[in-house]
């Protein structure tokens, strides 16, 4: 295998076949279909694009989707950190089982989660009926959307933070304690800075996942216009009305948001890697 400007010399065979196959498959399955969205939107004039992505219903959906995703990611950041802390540092009976359970929101099909959460939080559901006397309604309100997004984002923060906590060198904490630091100071000055990059990464991943979530949310949200419609739902609605261009326009907005987040996640990832290497 001769080397050239693109690929270094190697005695191993099969580079061009494997690379070629991968590029072909990637293009046919991912790249070309994705480009359809941009091409479709490009056919729209600016005013039409703009009106499609800023109509009142759409803007309401942005508020809901973005707001609920952010809120859910924040809740997961706090409680996910807590869960990771407890799993990494404490011992209790059944810990292995609990550890495995954290993966459930990741493994469970979204539709199943959707109907389960709806049944739990509707007015006569196991949880809903406890909250009703207080006047708190979850199902068919934005709060329900929040609950669903908390569910599906849960593993991201936990699995991001847990390995860092488990691998942390206790000696640093012991050193700080021996120098007179209180428990809170040890946590806030030694442990937390070490974990922060992973926490941010987990938060960003939970946020990104929540933005695009569909199946878990559409059952519990009730899909009420202007109030509990999420943006992915609006895309589906436009498709059903054969408004392909409108659907594509909304998709462009969502992809742009995902892209920015993906960039942030990758940057955070390399930032945390550099931080770990410096340790």
């Amino acid at each position: 295998m001769r080397g050239n400007w693109f690929q270094r010399y190697s005695i191993l065979p099969g580079f061009w076949p494997s690379f070629g196959l991968s590029m072909l498959y990637l293009s046919l399955v991912v790249l070309i279909p994705l480009s359809a969205i941009f091409l479709k939107t490009a056919a729209l004039t600016w005013p039409r694009f703009w009106s499609a992505v800023t109509s009142p219903a759409v803007v309401a959906s942005y508020r809901l989707t973005f707001g609920a995703s952010l809120g859910a990611a924040l809740v997961n950041a706090v409680f996910g950190f807590l869960v990771a802390w407890v799993l990494a540092r404490y011992r209790f009976p059944g810990k292995r089982l609990v550890d495995a359970l954290v993966d459930l929101p990741f493994a469970l099909p979204t539709a199943v989660a959707g109907i389960a959460l709806t049944s739990l939080y509707s007015e006569n559901g196991w949880v809903g009926r406890r909250l009703a006397p207080w006047g708190i309604r979850v199902a068919f309100t934005p709060l329900g959307v929040l609950v669903a997004l908390i569910f599906i984002g849960l593993p991201f923060v936990v699995r991001s933070v847990q390995p860092v906590l488990e691998g942390a060198d206790r000696e640093l904490e012991e050193a700080a304690a021996s120098l007179g630091a209180s428990r809170w100071q040890v946590f806030s000055r030694v442990v937390f800075p070490m974990v922060r990059p992973a926490l941010l990464t987990g938060f960003a991943m939970a946020f990104a996942r929540a933005l695009g979530e569909y199946g878990s949310v559409i059952f519990i949200s009730g899909n009420m216009p202007m109030r509990t419609e999420i943006t992915p739902l609006l895309i589906v609605a436009k498709l059903e009305q054969y408004d392909y261009a409108g659907a594509a326009a909304l998709a462009v907005v969502m992809l742009a948001a995902s892209f920015v987040l993906l960039l942030a996640i990758n940057l955070l990832g390399s930032y945390s890697r550099k931080y770990m290497e410096a340790q």
Binding site: L34, I37, T110, A208, G212, I235, L239, F259, L262
Partner: peptide, 12 residues
Amino acid sequence: AVSPVIAGLIYV
């Protein structure tokens, strides 16, 4: 990074 709905949309 792509929402499932968009994944369906592109093939439509």
